[in-house]
C-alpha cells in the first residue's frame, strides 16, 4: 500500500540524545544531549519521557509554534509510557502508536495522510527510546553482565520530533509505503537484524513496484536499525528474492555510532535510531544539496518476550517514507 502525497512538508525536526549518541559521529547535529541516561530524572522511564518532552519544546521553538492539530507518538515501553507522559504535557489531540522500531515512519505516514486529506493542517510526530528502559523490559536487568553475541544491536537513547504541515519548506514528504508483517522463522532474540531484513526487502519491493521506480531513483536508501550484519543479510535477500541490487544504501544504526570505538556490537537500534540519524545528518545533506531523493525505511521487530517463551518466532515490519528536496 503506497500513498503519494501532494502537499506535505517536513518543516522542522528536533533531536535529543543521551551520552553515547552525542559522543558518536553525529554528535554535532543533535539539538540537545544529556550526559546521563536518566536525563536528570529519578528513573530511566521518566528520563525517556523527559527527552521526548524536550524534543517537542525544541521543535516548538524551531518551528515558532505553540501547538499543533495532532500529536502522534510511540515508543518501546509497555503502555507507551513515555509517549503518554509527553502527551499529557503537550495537551494536543494524541494518537499513540506502536510498531516497535518502525514507529517513526508509521507516524510520518499517518500524519502525512491526515494533512494531505485536509483533515488537519499540521502534526507533530515523535518517538523515543532509552537503552536502559528497553534492556529492562525486553532483556535482563541493566546491571546484569551476561555476555551478548556480536549480532546484538544497542538500543539508542534519545527522542526525535518532527513538525509536518502544508506550508512549503525545503523537504517534501513525497510518498509513503505501509509495510506488511513478515516472519521468516528467526527465534534468536539477539539477532534482530536477521528478523527485520526480510520485512525491509518486502516493503522496498512493494514501494518500487507501486510507484514503478527503479532502486536507483533514490540518491540514498536507509534502513532503520539492521546493524552491520543485518545490512548484508538484506542485500543478499533483496538480490535473491526480488532481484534488487542495493548500492546507494546504508543503515541508520551503523551511521549513529562509531562501531570501532563505541561498544555497540552490530550497531544502534530502537525507535529513536532511525529518526535521530534521518533528522540529523541525512536532512542536513539534503538541505546542502548532496542528496535529492531519500527513501527512509524504519524497520521494527515486533518482538514480545512472552511469545518467544512460547516458542514462536519473531515477526517484523517496515514502513517507508520518501523524502525529496523541493525544487
Amino acid at each position: 500500500m503506497t500513498f503519494k502525497f501532494k502537499n506535505v512538508f517536513l518543516n522542522n525536526t528536533a533531536t535529543v540524545v543521551g551520552p553515547y549518541e552525542s559522543k558518536g559521529p553525529l554528535g554535532k547535529y543533535f539539538d540537545k544531549s544529556y550526559n546521563n541516561l536518566y536525563a536528570n530524572q529519578k528513573t530511566y522511564e521518566q528520563g525517556e519521557a523527559k527527552m521526548l518532552e524536550d524534543s517537542i519544546d525544541i521543535l516548538y521553538k524551531k518551528a515558532n509554534i505553540n501547538s499543533a492539530d495532532v500529536f502522534l507518538s510511540g515508543d518501546l515501553l509497555n503502555q507507551l509510557i513515555s509517549s503518554n507522559l509527553a502527551a499529557l504535557n503537550v495537551k494536543i489531540p494524541f494518537l499513540g502508536l506502536y510498531n516497535a522500531c518502525a514507529t517513526s515512519m508509521e507516524g510520518l505516514i499517518i500524519a502525512s495522510t491526515l494533512i494531505d486529506s485536509g483533515k488537519v493542517k499540521n502534526a507533530i510526530c515523535s518517538v523515543s527510546s532509552n537503552n536502559c528502559t528497553a534492556e529492562k523490559q525486553f532483556r535482563y536487568p541493566n546491571e546484569y553482565g551476561g555476555s551478548k553475541p556480536k549480532v546484538t544491536t544497542f538500543t539508542a537513547t534519545g527522542a526525535a520530533s518532527a513538525y509536518l504541515s502544508k506550508t512549503p519548506s525545503q523537504i517534501r514528504v513525497e510518498s509513503g509505503t505501509i509495510g506488511t508483517v513478515v516472519d521468516l522463522g528467526i527465534t534468536d532474540v539477539y539477532n534482530m537484524g536477521a528478523v527485520m531484513a526480510p520485512a525491509a526487502a518486502h516493503t522496498l519491493n512493494q514501494h518500487l513496484k507501486d510507484l514503478k521506480r527503479d532502486v536507483n531513483y533514490y540518491d540514498l536508501i536507509v534502513t532503520g536499525d539492521l546493524g552491520i550484519y543485518g545490512k548484508q543479510i538484506l542485500k543478499d535477500y533483496a538480490k535473491e528474492e526480488f532481484n534488487i541490487e542495493l548500492s546507494k544504501y546504508n543503515d541508520c544504526g551503523i551511521m549513529l555510532y562509531d562501531l570501532k570505538e563505541q561498544e555497540v556490537y552490530a550497531g544502534g537500534s530502537g525507535p529513536a535510531c532511525c529518526p535521530l540519524t534521518t533528522y540529523s545528518v541525512i536532512l542536513d545533506r539534503m538541505k546542502r544539496g548532496e542528496l535529492k531523493r531519500v527513501l527512509v525505511m524504519s524497520t521494527g521487530a515486533l518482538h514480545s518476550p512472552t511469545l518467544v517463551n512460547q516458542k514462536l518466532s519473531i515477526p517484523a515490519i517496515c514502513h517507508a517514507i520518501s523524502l525529496e528536496v523541493e525544487k
Binding site: K150, L184, G185, Q232, I233
Partner: peptide
C-alpha cells in the same frame, strides 16, 4: 523464500563467536 533457505543467508552473514577464547 522458505525459512531454511533464509536461515542459510543469515548464517552466511553473521560472525562466529570465538568459542575457544571464551
Amino acid at each position: 523464500m522458505d525459512k531454511e533457505k533464509y536461515q542459510k543467508i543469515v548464517d552466511k552473514n553473521i560472525p562466529k563467536e570465538n568459542v575457544k577464547i571464551n
